[in-house]
Nucleic acid binder design. Sequence first.
DNA 1: GTTTTGTTCAACCACGTGGTTGACAACACC
DNA 2: GGTGTTGTCAACCACGTGGTTGAACAAAAC
Lengths: 121, 121
Amino acid sequence: MAADQLSRVFSALADPIRRDMVARLAVGDATVNQLAEPYDVTVQAVSKHLKVLEDAGLVSRSREAQRRPVHLEAEVFDLMTKWIERYRRQAEERYRRLDDVLRRMPDDVEPVPPTQEGAVQ
Amino acid sequence: MAADQLSRVFSALADPIRRDMVARLAVGDATVNQLAEPYDVTVQAVSKHLKVLEDAGLVSRSREAQRRPVHLEAEVFDLMTKWIERYRRQAEERYRRLDDVLRRMPDDVEPVPPTQEGAVQ
DNA sequence: GTTTTGTTCAACCACGTGGTTGACAACACC
DNA sequence: GGTGTTGTCAACCACGTGGTTGAACAAAAC
């Protein structure tokens, strides 16, 4: 799927192995073989995982003799956190205001079912 | 894939339609048909998307006559942000300290390539 | 120049997923 | 009762993906 970068980033981090690689790369750069060592899969599989992370912009690779050290690019995280925070804040805001309305509302009033268009009342 | 919840949440948000649904649900609850309206897919497809979001714990559904209003559960976002922030902070910390080392280092010293085990030097 | 090391590419396979259509259940409304 | 609305379930299909093996390539080491 994917196409847009945000989708690629979320998709890349949906895999436990890839998340674990990111976690280890946060500690320091590593080569493909170093990264592959703890997992019970072939080096080729890890190489594929790295391609996914690279396409998502989460890692970059330099050249150093015949090795290709992998480097974590932390900036892309911002894309996600911004997206997440935006809608979480919006949702929380909404509940807060809804609470206000409910608190103000006399008990005998039939609560209206919330609608999509009606925004937040 | 998936299994663990973190994987399910990331995977659920890797789809643009599902992300858009979450964005709209942040504004207010909605029924399946309301959610399906803007997209060029069948209601059944949207129903499937909602199942994915529900399995990830991102939305919940109540029963209200024959309608099933969908409600956004914002708390699950914390799971992601915690994971993301942890490793971003770690990575940034690492670069900061690496900068220190480089700044302190005399020019004629050969910089050692960072290793996985060697942590951060 | 040959061999070893590190990594990728190509072909394949099993399985999951996003989409479809069609049938069906549950409730509201005449 | 019958009819329309809302939503799900089942079966199917095309395609992507994570894994494999085997070959290829590039740079070091011998």
